[in-house]
């Protein structure tokens, strides 16, 4: 599998470590009232779609960037990849 790194171009997936659903970017507010319930969902619940999935990959043997990769879990087609720090920054 090839990951299209936004800065370095297509790279072998073996350079990366896979973490999972990109919703891990949205860490709940620990001070909120129902924080514990929200954290439970954050830690344990996943949609696991057969289809387009946004997920986190760590370029461990590369530039050590975390990437948000949009990948079709059925065909493995990769529709895009961006630096997680940029995604987080844009959403903030």
């Amino acid at each position: 599998m090839l990951i299209p790194h936004p800065l370095l171009g297509p790279r072998d997936a073996q350079e990366f470590t896979y973490l999972g659903d990109a919703r891990l970017l949205e860490r709940p507010d620990p001070a909120a009232e129902n924080a514990e319930a929200r954290f439970c969902d954050y830690v344990y619940l996943r949609d696991n779609p057969a289809g387009v999935h946004r997920e986190l990959w760590f370029h461990e043997h590369g530039d050590r960037s975390w990437l948000v990769v949009t990948r079709d879990t059925v065909t493995h087609e990769i529709l895009g990849a961006e630096l997680a720090a940029d995604v987080k920054g844009a959403g903030a």
Partner: peptide
């Protein structure tokens, strides 16, 4: 290393995997 030739031209430098080593 499993890198395209363009990444290995003179003036290029990158981290990758070589025999299970970074």
């Amino acid at each position: 290393v499993n890198l395209p030739p363009a990444s290995l031209l003179p003036g290029k430098a990158t981290r990758t995997v070589l025999e299970h080593l970074g």
